[in-house]
Design a protein around this nucleic acid. Structure first.
Length: 427
DNA sequence: TCTGGGGTCCTAGGACCC
DNA sequence: TCTGGGGTCCTAGGACCC
């Protein structure tokens, strides 16, 4: 590489606007311009808001406390339909991936991009073209920020979102002057990686804007807030610390649920735990991992100070790395018996597996039983569940009669993913 | 009477993200 | 009556060892 030809790397962030709400709007153009919200599982709290809804309802608001507001302002309310959102996300990411080879899918609605060797390409126009293509093809509106680091790309996207008229949804932070101006505008709480706790402490010290924040010394930040916050400062100053991350197997996998009502009965809980465990084991097999530990937890409703509170949790070691629903269910139920206490109204429970290793590795261990039959059975279960819908095939500990229903009073049809009907499998 | 110091490993919990 | 779910990384402090 010649000296006078410096290759300047830039990062981009493509972020779908109010993603879940935008997905719901695709099939109902009448919702455009209206306040719309999407609720979490059990219709518990607000997890996505249209721009019109944002001044009315805070993020995470418990739905039952806002029924009055919903009515008064004619807010359109939807139960979450994650199958639909996942499908639209995949389509969106496929298009984004055609614009640069270096891309990191950061979440269901966000992707980081890396522009290496794009010196002769006008990035604003290029990304503006991508934004238009995605809107034309899928109907999802995007905001795009570009800058010398991931943290600055995030900040640029925030600016693009805040000033849609002037930026047309795409903003490039490429000169020291623009970066300086952006940092003087950006509130510390809006810096990526500075959350509620740390921004409250910074505000107490009268550190209000990102431009104030980057003046603090490394040693002070290190001592007071830890190494991660120092890294964020460097990123804001234009030194890339965080690179794109390649997809890797999860280190932990969890399945947890808050119940629509509550559970007092051990057998009911045993059934729920067995189901969570087989869902978790299927997730393990999907990423071809096996786990060394399994954690079971149950807890009462922590929002109800008037009720007796109890939270129990236990972590058990597997005999050898496993992805077997049967092995893991046995362990999970052993754990559940140990932490179960009679007389409480349980509101939430879950399963978490950890210390994952690649599933193939365990066969290198001569002392491990081959459990070939387990393996074949698990394979069959996974294939049938994949084909006919989630969780149709159940294990012994799961009550075959019982279908656990989330509260989803306001579900929209799953237009792109609908399965015709439930298929019963008799064995 | 005297009451070290440094290293490693592990875990729980904090803080953050979408 | 009704308050989500699934992740990551880091740190402090205890246990243990020499």
């Amino acid at each position: 590489m010649s000296k006078n030809h410096v290759h300047k790397t830039l990062y981009g962030l493509a972020d779908a606007n109010n993603f879940y709400v935008s997905c719901e709007r695709l099939f109902r153009p009448g919702l455009n311009g209206k306040p719309v919200v999407v609720l979490s599982n059990n219709d518990g709290c607000v997890i996505s808001r249209s721009n019109e809804a944002k001044p009315l309802i805070p993020m995470g608001a418990p739905a039952f406390q806002y029924e009055e507001i919903f009515r008064k302002h004619g807010v359109e309310v939807f139960s979450a339909n994650f199958a639909l959102y996942g499908d639209l996300s995949t389509r969106m990411m496929n298009i984004i991936g055609r614009y640069t080879p270096d891309m990191e899918i950061y979440s269901i609605d966000e992707a980081f991009l890396k522009f290496d060797g794009f010196e002769n390409i006008p990035l604003e126009e290029y990304m503006s073209g991508m934004k238009k293509e995605i809107f034309r093809a899928i109907g999802i509106p995007l905001t795009i920020g570009i800058g010398p680091t991931k943290t600055l790309a995030k900040a640029a996207a925030r600016i693009a979102k805040k000033f849609p008229g002037r930026t047309r949804g795409v903003y490039l932070l490429d000169t020291p002057e623009k970066i300086d101006k952006a940092l003087r505008w950006l509130p510390v709480g809006d810096i990526h990686g500075i959350g509620r706790r740390i921004s409250a402490k910074l505000l107490q010290m009268n550190v209000q804007k990102a431009s104030d924040f980057i003046k603090l010394s490394d040693s002070f930040l290190r001592k007071r807030f830890g190494i991660q916050v120092v890294r964020i400062k460097h990123e804001l100053k234009g030194n890339a610390v965080f690179d794109l991350e390649m997809p890797q197997p999860r280190q932990r996998i969890a399945t947890t649920r808050t119940f629509a009502g509550h559970i007092r009965d051990f057998d009911e809980m045993r059934e729920r735990i067995a189901t969570f465990t087989s869902v978790t084991a299927a997730k393990l097999r999907k990423q071809k991992s096996a786990c060394n530990f399994i954690t079971v937890f149950i807890r009462t409703n922590r929002h109800r100070q008037d009720l007796k509170q109890y939270a129990g949790s236990i972590t058990l070691k597997t005999d050898y790395p496993t992805d077997s629903s049967i092995e893991l269910s046995k362990l999970a139920l052993t754990g559940l018996r140990k932490i179960w206490r009679n007389g409480y109204d349980y509101k939430k429970a879950g399963i978490l597996v950890s210390e994952l290793v690649p599933a193939g590795e365990r066969q290198l261990n001569l002392f491990v039983p081959t459990d070939e039959r387990h393996h074949r059975l698990m394979n069959v279960i996974d294939r049938l569940n994949l084909r006919y819908g989630h969780n149709l095939l159940k294990l012994g500990g799961q009550d075959p009669q019982r279908t656990w229903k989330m509260k989803q009073a306001r579900l929209s049809p799953a237009y792109t993913t609908r399965l015709t009907d439930i298929i019963k499998v008799y064995t």
